[in-house]
């Protein structure tokens, strides 16, 4: 009898099947969320319009970040918070909270896939190498598009899960959305004034989304300081931090100490990548 209790964990510990079932359920809930559906519909609408008369990519690329990233963050925040009321019931099931959080994090794959599709459509409408990309090399142009379209679509929903796990205020998602919007607007305007400043470049890139160029009134596109490739690394580090912070809630024992250790490593990596992103690329603003 003792042996049965000791070596019979299959009935009580969740395996891969449980996780898959949970992830599938969360995916279904996310895909049917009206906020995400409206965001996806708007992305389809903007991509169907085409580039129009835009003179720089920054006039077109923020939409996926706003709708797949920003709205995706709000959707996953509500998805995470919606389980709070049933926590006393769900909390006594064999599935631990970190496993449920991990299942929630998998829903970010949906907006990530949407972001990839949007990127393909974007490149089809606005081929790489065109004059609206400015003086960046072809690989840097691709990196800018990945950083502006695909990465926010992945990071936004992950941030929403972390926020939902830790913050009780029900309006936290839209407050954070507006704060990020305000910060990106502010540092972009600062960059217009101080185009060659390394500090301002780091401040501009200290965000989950950043602009890399500006269409000047005199004609041509001015490329700002900063390395688009290292910026993707910074964004990936932010995604890792969001996942780890979300998983930390409810983690106990060795799992908790491992998560904290991983958080430290991810934090250091994020700082290094941010500095490299700010100091890399062009050393001064360049117009082409």
């Amino acid at each position: 009898m003792t042996a049965t209790l000791t070596f019979g964990p299959s009935a009580t510990s969740p395996g891969r099947g449980t996780f898959t079932a949970l992830a599938a359920r969360e995916l279904r809930r996310f895909v049917l969320n009206p906020v995400f559906l409206s965001a996806a519909a708007f992305i389809v609408f903007t991509q169907s319009l085409g580039p129009g008369g835009e003179t720089e990519i920054d006039g077109l690329s923020p939409y996926p970040a706003i709708f797949l990233g920003g709205f995706g963050m709000m959707a996953t925040y509500w998805l995470t918070r919606s389980m709070r009321a049933s926590e006393p019931v769900v909390g006594v099931t064999p599935v631990t909270r970190p496993v449920r959080t991990a299942a929630l994090c998998t829903v970010a794959l949906v907006p990530f896939a949407c972001g990839c599709l949007t990127l393909l459509r974007f490149v089809q409408l606005t081929p790489v190498g065109g004059p609206i990309y400015g003086p960046f090399s072809s690989s840097a142009q691709v990196a800018i598009l990945v950083g502006q379209i695909v990465m926010p679509a992945l990071g936004g929903p992950l941030l929403g899960v972390a926020l939902g796990r830790w913050v009780r205020f029900p309006g936290a998602a839209f407050v954070l959305f507006l704060l990020i919007y305000g910060w990106v607007s502010l540092v972009t305007i600062l960059t217009m004034w101080h185009q060659n400043s390394a500090l301002v470049a780091v401040l501009r890139l200290f965000a989950p989304f950043a602009f890399f160029s500006l269409h000047s009134d005199a004609g041509g596109v001015t490329a700002w300081r900063g390395s688009p490739w290292f910026f993707i690394g910074w964004q990936l580090a932010l995604c890792a931090i969001a996942i780890l912070v979300a998983l930390l809630r409810g983690a106990e024992g060795r799992v908790r100490s491992r998560i904290i250790r991983a958080l430290g490593i991810a934090g250091v990596a994020a700082v290094i990548l941010l500095v490299l992103a700010g100091l890399g690329g062009f050393t001064h603003a360049l117009t082409a």
Binding site: F169, P170, G171, V175, L178, L179, Y181, G182, S185, L186, I189, L190, M192, W193
Partner: peptide, 30 residues
């Protein structure tokens, strides 16, 4: 807490809009 907190965040965002006139039309609506 919600009313005062949101109003406080609004003052911070709006204060940045007031401090940086070029950003006013972006930050004051927020």
């Amino acid at each position: 807490p919600a009313v005062a907190g949101l109003s406080g965040v609004a003052v911070v965002v709006g204060g940045c809009g007031a401090a940086f006139p070029a950003a006013a039309t972006l930050l004051l609506p927020a």
